[in-house]
Design a protein around this nucleic acid. Sequence first.
DNA 1: CTGAAAGCGCTTACAG
DNA 2: CTGAAAGCGCTTACAG
Lengths: 364, 364
Amino acid sequence: MTSSKTPSPDADGVEIDAGLEAGLEGGRKRATINDIARLAGVSKKTVSRVINQSPFVRDETRERIEAVIAEWGYAPDPQARGLAFRRSFLIGMIYDNPNPQYVVNMQLGLLDGIRGSGFELVVHPCDRASPTFLQDIRTFVERQKLFGVVLPPSVSEDERVAKLLREIGCEYIRIASVELDKPEHMIVGHDRLGSEAMGAYLVELGHREIGFISGLPSFRSSHERRGGFEDALNKAGLQLKPDYVVQGAYTFESGLACGEQLLAKTPRPTAIFAGNDEMAAGVLQAARRAGLQVPADVTVVGFDDFQIAQAVWPPLTTIHIPTREVGRIAAEKLIGAEAREKRDPNNTIPYLVVRESSGAPPVG
Amino acid sequence: MTSSKTPSPDADGVEIDAGLEAGLEGGRKRATINDIARLAGVSKKTVSRVINQSPFVRDETRERIEAVIAEWGYAPDPQARGLAFRRSFLIGMIYDNPNPQYVVNMQLGLLDGIRGSGFELVVHPCDRASPTFLQDIRTFVERQKLFGVVLPPSVSEDERVAKLLREIGCEYIRIASVELDKPEHMIVGHDRLGSEAMGAYLVELGHREIGFISGLPSFRSSHERRGGFEDALNKAGLQLKPDYVVQGAYTFESGLACGEQLLAKTPRPTAIFAGNDEMAAGVLQAARRAGLQVPADVTVVGFDDFQIAQAVWPPLTTIHIPTREVGRIAAEKLIGAEAREKRDPNNTIPYLVVRESSGAPPVG
DNA sequence: CTGAAAGCGCTTACAG
DNA sequence: CTGAAAGCGCTTACAG
């Protein structure tokens, strides 16, 4: 079975050089480091130095070699290089985030960050509840000799994973709402600031009785989003009323249930801030079932600014998270390309997007 | 820069064997084919035969080697194997599907299919409109020496890609709604059958004036879904009225616009079949704006059964596509593991899911 | 600043 | 059925 998938043998290696030029013209064979060395009149070690940007090459030699490399469109074989380096040119994305939009955006961002670098992205969903959770990650990383991995939430928040990665000597970047690790291992999302901006916006609109639906407690972002909201209230001289905070699960269904619960309270909140868009969409539904108009009777806002925020009616006022941007920055940091371009350091910070689901509280 | 990422040199290779046992006990070094060969008292070539399931090994020898492999938890280094094979153990997913839910489900399916096989999944989004589209794919496949690639729609429908892959000798599986290629290169989704089931369902409910919103014409599925609907009408002795077919773009916005267009017709359709859930959600919004109740005044149905189908109100009657299952089958076929288990050959066929957005046409 | 030798962990081609 | 030699395309360690 496997042998049927095995490529048939090439021509005898002894004759490879003789056939190279014709072969390349025909688009058949790719040049190797040996070809480049011979063509440039140097040893392969020197070519290797150029590839790896060693400073110990005379400028003139370097230029000559670079010219040959460009002429032949040579690129080193990542497999051979990896074997010699004892480390592959693969970076892993290990994730358990339940939101497809988040996952896809994050992948696009990581790909943005490694574009043109010769690295590739290998995806690895995981399940923290699985009995083989840590062993699976270990096997994945060790077997592929991954260059490094990126961990988005919530697996990024698992200290066991960070510890394992440190033990086996695998580079890693954790993406989380707070600084959980040394700066070189972190990209911080600052969910708290986003949430504070939303709180301030609602207060400014005139809302005082505001319901809050928190996310899954196993996600650090749940606490940060709630904390930021509380910060905003406090800055305005207001208090967060525990009675108006209910526990959701980041799902549409939980938003619906929590929304019904909050809308039944007396006095009824004039605004509901859900910890993500999915739950806010559920609240919209709860409001509709209760015969309430949004935003005339009640303001409903979310967090994330994923596709659903614009698909529901009315479109949701929410906090935009620059997921793709965060991914790009994480990948660049991982492969050490962060200084390739100067970037605005603030571009990982979430910001408010006002749409039609929010307004002033009803009068009287 | 690169050199700072380079692992520091190991101990002298000459002494590797001497330190192996102690090293493994401490969890430091992984066994290599040389270790297994020595431990089993055979040559590494024979170990290689066992790894590659060659029939030319005496049973007793094989068992002895397998025991040593199991004892030491040995797994061949994919990088070294790939270098020798001139082919990696990576499979690529090359995609341009705009739906995150589809992409994630497909990835999960592909991962299901390669689990335990030693293969890994490398993701590669692409843009058919890019001037470097084909060149990018070629570079990706050749540089990584991919074992093979899976192509979901709509890039699966691009003959240039299939041709390129054939030319460079890369295995591929195309996932599409119809048989576009030789059976060994195809997984067929049968969108037409799903659509026909929906058409039959609507007719049975008593609908006669049914509006249809087609998807992007660049997606083959758009035509299949429309064709299946027409098939159903014809089987019931009805005709598809061109006037009731409008062109959408698989997005929420296009569903909203097309929905408004259809609902303004006289007589007003009693049901609207949108080519995907996203557009159906847009139709729901159009109905709301027009002051119509769903399903009392108009039935609205979709296709795909992605998350949004259950997030809107009322939840959508739709056609469920087994995306993950299709992905698993595609991956197994690619790596030649399709016979690992007997599967129901029908499990790639879409089926009807009835929810609250459909009902009989209004009386009178 | 540059190179010849040995090695990374596997497989192919060739013998026996 | 089994093995010794050479090779995949790179890099490291050591000289010079």
